[in-house]
Design a protein around this nucleic acid. Structure first.
Lengths: 349, 349
DNA sequence: GACTAGCACTCGGTACAATTGAGTGCTAAC
DNA sequence: GTTAGCACTCAATTGTACCGAGTGCTAGTC
């Protein structure tokens, strides 16, 4: 037991074990069935008999890469097995048809940023047959181009703020005094002067007077700054959630996954957590959400001019086609960056 | 065959048949199982033996109200059976706990209209355990309070229009000439003058000159008016889509329903179609979408001061608890109307 | 004439045993 | 170290019998 040192820190397997593990994983991804020793032995380039494969499999199982549903069945990969597989994956390339599909999409897409992101999420989910997530950039680093207070009626004003990234955010004010047109216009003027050029995180020197306009200005600034830039969820688009239903066979699993997807803030935090940890793939329990323990998540950041500008992601079963998914996510994230970044470059040029 | 006149126009059944049908429907809604003659006979106030019930059931089956999964099983209602049941339903009242829950929600809810509607859809789905739809009013009848053109950069302008119902809509302009700050400000001034007080459907006399500001104005008006007021889908909120997974047992049905729900425009057209036809319940094939043939949809319009201001809806299996669903949808729609209408009344007062 | 007790019949569901076969672990020989 | 051979395990399939819920029909009763 102690002789053959099992080195837990080493994630390296001897070459043959690696080949076997990879064969098991990729066949299981294709067939969704437990994989037996004979099909591994016959497949590919292992010039070795099933018996030898079996003894290697026993060892792989001891080390936690494989599991056996029951005694007389083949092996299926554990999360750790998938992890090894993914870590040793040569990065694939998107198929030509799909590449064309992506190019066509970005050549023809038009409309507001939100519409583009929404449609992108649908595209990505069609490309991969998995559920797709597309997140836009937070407005935290954008500066205010215009802030306007609109008088809806005497007790309702709307602060409409336009940011340099094209985002428009509104906040309702409901003061407990009557506001006439002039007061509102005056407050609007002050807000504009005060906020233009600031970001949502810049502290602002609000007027300390007590006249109605000043109160409106203070309330408006407070409303604007109260907004959690990360936690708004306005900028998250989930496409192809119906794919969840054909990724898992149990209705109960489908329900659990859907109920997570419903809470877009959870999805945002999951993706951001992955980006923060530098992960591009989270397998099973790695994603930290128990209801998603049957899922794998692939993410790719969208980077414009070196700055983070959102992310795209894919959610599928742990036996997802990682190579395809990563290729698709990567391609779409790059196209997105070019789509939005390219414009700005032209303009700044 | 021709003697006992089967009057197809008459949806009236003799009293006993009606009782039996209702017993079958309500028991099947509870148990999801085929209902046999003996349980109908023992249940409730039918002072009649199972044999009599059976012969009535044969007749009900011939008339299309009931169906038999197989020879030696009980009966299940057809869509027509559910329809009769629903048409003869005494309108129920929401349970006290749930009533309280709704009141609490509307007493505490705050935020922008969209947030309120979004949260309302979650509330409604929690109340009923079905998937909920909440639609806001179209902006077709709202008038423009403010129209502003913001210069993002030389080739990107943003038309930000604020409507009297508090809606803020943005449209990107990408002219093929450079726009400086003054031109943009001038166009903005003209747009404001031109659009204030109009609705999205009011024709507007645009300037016919060819200077840059005039072109911007024309493009902006065109962009605004190109927006389909019904087809925007910005105003639809679907809550509790994960409930679909426990409304149906087959994964395939779940997938089909989800894929319809993903297309919010379809949902909008379904609900609007029902409202137009004056239906409050659509059962099975009545909703006109084949993939939703296993679903029933309950809708309730939201009416503020007599004007349509949106709708709420519920989607569940055809064996849904219609009374509860209708009560919940009705209560929520009324609360919504009061929530948004009440405010305005105070303000107009 | 309407109702019902009685009865033969149907057929899905369950329980059980037998069979099959994919796949294993072990061992002895190469 | 590898592998052929073999006994073993166990899920899945098949077949059989049976149960029982529920039916339709008929003959008799009120």
């Amino acid at each position: 037991m102690a002789r053959r040192a099992t080195n837990p820190a080493s994630s390296d397997l001897d070459a043959r074990k690696a080949t076997i593990l990879e064969a098991v994983v990729s066949e299981h991804i294709d067939t969704a069935q437990p994989v037996g020793s004979s099909s591994v032995a016959s497949s590919a380039d292992i010039g070795v008999s099933p018996a030898t494969v079996r003894s290697e499999m026993v060892s792989l199982e001891r080390e936690g890469y494989l599991a056996q549903p029951h005694t007389s069945a083949g092996r299926i990969p554990t999360d750790k097995g998938y992890r090894y597989f993914v870590d040793h994956l040569t990065s694939g390339v998107l198929g030509a048809v799909q590449q064309q599909q992506v190019s066509d999409f970005f050549a023809n897409v038009r409309g507001e940023v939100e519409d583009v992101l929404e449609q992108t999420s649908t595209l990505l989910s069609q490309l991969t047959r998995y559920t797709a997530v597309v997140m836009g950039a937070t407005h935290a680093n954008s500066s205010v181009l215009s802030a306007q207070l609109v008088n809806i009626d005497a007790h309702h004003q709307l602060l409409v703020t336009v940011f340099s990234d094209g985002a428009v955010i509104k906040h309702s004010l409901t003061p407990n005094f009557d506001v006439n047109y002039e007061t509102c216009a005056e407050a609007s003027r002050q807000l504009n002067a005060l906020l233009i050029g600031t970001t949502m995180e810049t502290p602002v020197q609000v007027p300390s007077r007590h006249d109605h306009a000043a109160v409106l200005v203070r309330d408006a600034v407070a409303a604007l700054h109260a907004q959690q830039p990360t936690a708004d969820g306005d900028n998250v688009f989930i496409g192809g959630s119906s794919r969840v239903a054909d990724s898992f066979e149990g209705v109960e699993t489908v329900r659990k996954v859907l109920s997570i997807l419903e809470q877009e803030l959870l999805v945002v935090s999951l993706v951001e957590d992955m980006l923060k940890r530098g992960l591009s793939v989270a397998i099973g329990s790695e994603n930290g959400f128990e209801p998603l323990s049957a899922c794998a998540v692939v993410v790719a950041p969208v980077t414009i001019d070196g700055a983070p500008a959102g992310a795209v992601g894919l959610l599928g079963p742990t036996r997802m086609k990682y190579q395809e998914a990563m290729a698709a996510a990567g391609a779409v994230s790059q196209h997105l960056a070019r789509h939005f970044g390219g414009d700005e470059e032209n303009a700044n040029h």
